[in-house]
Design a protein around this nucleic acid. Structure first.
Lengths: 317, 317
DNA sequence: CTGTTAGCGCATTCAC
DNA sequence: GTGAATGCGCTAACAG
């Protein structure tokens, strides 16, 4: 069995409350007694029961994380960052998968509330509105989503990608999105088109409309709103005999793990997941402490230049 | 505030204990009263506090899941399956990342125990021994790991891949592993070599030794112990002008998400994560109920034939 | 200043 | 069949 406050108290002939006071540094205990209490506490390997503390204080030390699809390679990076950040503050992380379903998402939120989560971080399903609960909430979505707590600067990321290609001399681009319903993808693409210089041109291809004649594009460079689509484009082009980056440059988004494993290694626009996670957890903690919710935070993205982008070759057009 | 047993009890002029009995179907309550209790319980939207129940019963309804590296694309699939399985049984899932570190792993286990996890599922770091705790544990590793609870049949998976290529007429193979320290990879490769027919030959390339002259291999087919390495091989070969599967066939392992997104789509040997997760959770539940721990379970793998494998072309050698 | 009493919400004895 | 008493381990509010 675990040692409890009572055990220590009996051991020293004092009351449990005093032990609690001493151990929590409430200062309400004489230095001498406090020392002895700490001593026996370590001797008996006392570990406070977070469960009992939770019942008493209403704070469980556990936060929830609801993801739309754990197996989507984008989210593990966020999960990892949130877990690391939470662990650093001694918080546990309850995880749930909303399976892209709005009902499942609502259900997951309720389940976590019942499990005693102090607050919940939600990466909402596309276009889903997260119902307000009487529980601190932090949304990681896009700047254009109402209620968003923190997110990457997707528009800025799009601009970054275009600027990189512009500097390399590319003028004719192909932008690849997957779903028009995704605000993340929309933000990224609008950031790209807004950053085009007057002499640049860009076509947009939405994969939900079909792959189209990707292999026959006249563009000299291509930006996909996800590394996954960049990978599709890369292998499709390679298979058709086009060489990357010699014939055509490719940029992806989000720095998935495989981007470093392929040849050529993928140039990508990365999210600062550590900062995003920190902000999300911080927002939860602030709300828990009754402090004002910090304002929405937009975290800059970073371009990681690897091998899939190169200067535009004369005659590419 | 949440409705409690007391609220219902007061509302009906009975005692809290009776309400508890009625709601938990302990049968010790008259049918009529029980009905009224259930009625008002739903009317008042009563949700028992799992925290209080946990304190009383010692069961929190939460299990832990410790992964070596959340961002490694292999593990999200397991996490997703475990979460789904746990949710189906009304259990929550606490997640932790051991960051490939044995100390961090031990620490994560302790943290989860303190957070009140009823049991913990561990996907151990390579070669790590998981210290026994006074808590139900389930290990997902390999058949050759002592203490393993459930795992995919990695050797059988290796055999499956070889049989597939043998049937396609391939005789000269290249096997790609990454680390000799990984028992999973070792099991897979030993399964492959054991399944070679007498007229087949296979070289083994460990990536920790360097990529080597992958592009110049004389093999007509290649098996990587992970989709990630298969992807490296595929893009390297494509870049060198070799055509997949026309010139060389490729098989990966674990059915990562990107395998369907590339051209050609990757043939792979998949784990039955749903079954593995079910077995792991079931083992935990059995241990919690004091039932005997079920014997180690080895779950068959499945070959998913996509586009990266084809019959051996005459003249390939 | 020090230490104790009370009770968080629930489930489990045991009397009635 | 039902209810009053008890305690899980802890801490906030109170009395000494």
């Amino acid at each position: 069995m675990q040692t409890t406050l009572q055990d220590i108290a009996r051991h020293l002939g004092v009351s449990a409350a005093t032990v609690s006071n001493a151990l929590n540094g409430r200062g309400r205990v004489s230095a001498a007694l406090s020392a002895r209490i700490h001593e026996t506490a370590t001797a008996l390997e006392y570990r406070p029961s977070l469960q009992a503390r939770a019942l008493r204080t209403g704070r469980s030390g556990v936060i929830g994380l609801v993801l739309p699809d754990i197996s989507n390679p984008l989210f593990p990076a966020i999960a990892q960052a949130v877990e690391a950040q939470a662990a650093a503050q001694g918080l546990g992380v309850l995880i749930a998968d909303s399976m892209g379903d709005s009902d499942a998402q609502a259900q997951a939120l309720r389940r976590m509330m019942r499990q005693g989560a102090d607050g919940i971080i939600v990466v909402p399903r596309r276009g889903t509105r997260v119902a307000a609960m009487n529980l601190p909430l932090a949304l990681i979505d896009t700047a254009s989503t109402p209620g968003n707590t923190v997110s990457a600067d997707h528009r800025g990321g799009g601009a970054l990608a275009v600027a990189h290609l512009a500097a390399l001399g590319h003028r004719q681009l192909l932008l690849i999105g997957e779903s028009r319903a995704s605000s993340v993808q929309n933000d990224r693409i609008s950031g790209m088109t807004a950053a085009l210089t007057p002499d640049m041109r860009a076509d947009t291809l939405w994969l939900e409309d079909g792959v189209g004649a990707l292999a026959e594009t006249h563009a000299t460079a291509l930006i996909a709103t996800s590394d996954l689509h960049a990978l599709t484009a890369l292998t499709t082009l390679q298979r058709a005999g086009r060489r990357v980056p010699h014939d055509i440059s490719i940029i992806g988004f989000d720095d998935h793990a495989f981007g470093r494993a392929i040849a050529p290694a993928l140039t990508t626009v990365a999210q600062d997941t550590a900062t995003i996670a920190r902000a999300a957890v911080a927002s939860l903690v602030a709300q828990l402490n009754g402090e004002p919710t910090p304002p929405q935070i937009i975290v800059p993205m970073t371009l990681i230049h690897r091998e899939s982008t190169a200067p535009c070759q004369p005659g590419d057009m």
